[in-house]
Computed example of a mutant assay.
Amino acid sequence: MKKLLLFFTLAIALLALPLVAHADKTKWANPNYNFSKLQNIDLVSISIVEPYEDSFSVDDMASEKIISALQKSLAKRNFSFESSVESNLMITKEAAAKLAKDALASAYSTETIKIAPETSAELKIIAHKFGYRTRIIPAHEEPRTRTFKEKAKDNNGNWVERNVERTVYEYVPERTVYDAQLDVSFQLFDPATQKIIFNLRDVRERSQDSDTTDMWQRMANYFAQELAKAAKK
């Protein structure tokens, strides 16, 4: 039962959330690994999935943003960070799914086999989405509250001017908006055995804002935070 539960939990962490359009996170830490000695994170690959929707554009600075944010976030949690990126590639959606399955296959499926703790681990990033989608908001009418001046008689029969709020519908022309979307897998491997020891998949979206910088920094911060928690257990 424990073997099946471990395998199922990791499968969800690696393969879940392919098309989620709101903030969501799935995390898994290998129970066979002791994180207490982990100090150094080596980024060995960045794989960016090619757009599989015509409306989606990859951030031109995706790789640079990934490296810069990770360096800041991990330093705050007292991890050293190095980037020895071997592959900084655009890959297909199918290839990304295969990478996830390969990582799953590398995991131990029993709690009886322990992985010797190391001071270093290798990080692989899969950016399932790192950019923004373009969408059109059709022309339409929206309700607005407007203040009008009207004349009316007071209790004494005198004409007075007063402000009256009324709801009116105003025409809004068609416009194009951009929604930032990030869907990133953080896969951490033990360098001695090449077994996956930690996986985090984080999905976030920000409507009507194409800048991924702040959102990605928060994702990197969350990864470093959760890794630090694992190291303290």
Rank of each mutant, 00 (worst) to 15 (best):
S45L: 12
S45F: 13
I46P: 10
I46A: 14
S47W: 10
I48H: 10
V49G: 06
Y52V: 09
E53H: 09
E53C: 03
D54I: 02
D54Y: 05
S55Y: 06
F56A: 03
V58M: 01
S63I: 01
E64H: 06
K65L: 12
I66L: 10
I67P: 03
S68R: 09
L70M: 12
K72R: 15
S73D: 05
S73K: 05
L74T: 03
R77V: 07
F81H: 15
E82M: 14
E82W: 11
S83L: 10
S83C: 12
S84A: 13
S84E: 13
V85G: 12
V85W: 14
E86I: 04
S87M: 12
N88M: 09
N88D: 14
I91T: 02
K93Y: 07
E94R: 09
A95P: 00
A96S: 13
K98I: 02
K98L: 05
L99F: 12
K101Q: 14
D102Y: 04
D102F: 04
D102H: 04
L104K: 10
L104G: 06
A105M: 09
A105H: 07
Y108G: 03
Y108S: 04
S109T: 03
S109I: 02
E111Q: 03
I113S: 00
K114L: 09
I115D: 00
I115L: 08
P117W: 06
E118T: 13
T119E: 13
A121L: 05
L123H: 06
L123K: 08
K124V: 11
I126Q: 15
A127K: 03
A127N: 02
K129V: 00
F130D: 01
G131H: 05
G131T: 02
G131P: 01
R133Q: 09
T134L: 11
T134K: 14
T134S: 10
R135F: 04
I137L: 09
I137H: 07
I137Q: 11
A139G: 14
E141P: 05
E141Y: 15
E142M: 08
E142V: 14
P143Y: 10
R144M: 11
T145M: 05
R146A: 01
R146K: 07
F148P: 00
K149L: 01
